[in-house]
């Protein structure tokens, strides 16, 4: 939409509006469908933004931390832990490595076995928390070296269960974006149908306007204005309802679960404002195309 078009659309010709008779049903249906589409678009956007956030966070957090497990008899344990820490310290890409204290390990197990667990009497492996820096380390190389020097050491960088999760969140985001696009196309199709119906119903009026010297732009504008305003009004209403609905969803809180995280955050709340604007733009373009096609049949 060019700048001049917008000005023309807004300033409009109040007279021109009256020349085309009002059409109750098409108008109401256009407003309703625009509203419904905008409502759906808000949810698809929320889904897409939330899963995007989730994918980023999981990828980021999980890529950075790994666990080294050392299973050894009590007498060898301290020695092997020291040796492992030494190796980790030398490994490029490892920001820090820290052996967990017995208390920390007990805390990790407490949810499963209860707080009174006599940890000392159990063959619990020693855990070392490894945090990677920016580019990360070569996990395979590290594994090789550890297996050579420290029997019973297992490096778990969470890749196994991280990847499918991150991939799932990523596809969910793509799905959301795709849904928004589909909703936009469906709206364009619907407005095109409505515009064609409106133009066909007013074929006589258009013909008379053309006969008395109206230029195509003038006639098309009368219809563009109508459908753009209807789409804008409908989509604004649908968007408001959609945002209200999203706001009513339970907030993320500490749980950080997926369903509870579905919503907008911070400036993300402004994104739905684009929905009515895009809807109006789609309506404008669809109506213009329909009007052009219709007018070209008229000498």
């Amino acid at each position: 939409m060019k700048k001049g078009d917008i000005r023309e659309l807004l300033a409009g010709d109040v007279q021109a509006d009256r020349l085309v008779p009002p059409s109750g049903l098409t108008a109401h249906l256009t407003i309703f469908v625009s509203g419904a589409m905008a409502f759906l678009a808000v949810f698809a956007l929320a889904l897409s933004l939330a899963s995007g956030r989730l994918a980023d966070r999981w990828a980021d957090e999980l890529a950075r931390s790994a666990t080294l497990r050392i299973s050894a008899s009590a007498d060898q344990r301290a020695v092997l832990t020291e040796a492992a820490l030494a190796i980790l310290e030398q490994t490029p890409g490892v920001a820090s490595a820290r052996a967990m204290t017995p208390e920390e390990q007990a805390a990790l197990l407490a949810p499963w076995f209860g707080a009174s667990l006599p940890l000392d009497s159990l063959p619990v492996p020693q855990l070392i928390e490894v945090v990677a820096d920016g580019p990360g380390y070569d996990a395979e190389g590290l594994r090789l070296r550890l297996s050579a020097e420290i029997p019973g050491a297992v490096l778990d960088d969470h890749t196994r269960w991280r990847e499918p999760l991150v991939r799932a969140a990523g596809s969910l985001r793509t799905l959301g974006v795709f849904s928004v696009l589909l909703i936009g196309c469906a709206m364009a199709a619907m407005i095109t149908l409505a515009a064609h119906a409106g133009l066909a119903a007013n074929a006589q009026v258009i013909e008379v306007l053309r006969l008395v010297g109206a230029q195509d732009r003038y006639i098309a504008n009368a219809f563009e204005r109508r459908f753009t305003l209807r789409a804008l009004i409908g989509a604004a209403g649908g968007m408001a309802l959609g945002v209200f609905g999203v706001a009513l969803l339970p907030s993320a809180g500490d749980a950080d679960g997926f369903l509870t995280g579905l919503g907008f955050q911070g400036a993300g709340w402004l994104v739905p404002l684009l929905v009515p604007l895009l809807g109006a733009g789609v309506a404008f373009a669809a109506t213009r195309a329909a009007a052009r096609r219709r007018l070209e049949r008229l000498q």
Partner: peptide, 10 residues
């Protein structure tokens, strides 16, 4: 009508 569609000031 011809005046209106040619954008004359009514």
């Amino acid at each position: 009508l011809p005046l209106i569609v040619s954008g004359r000031d009514m």
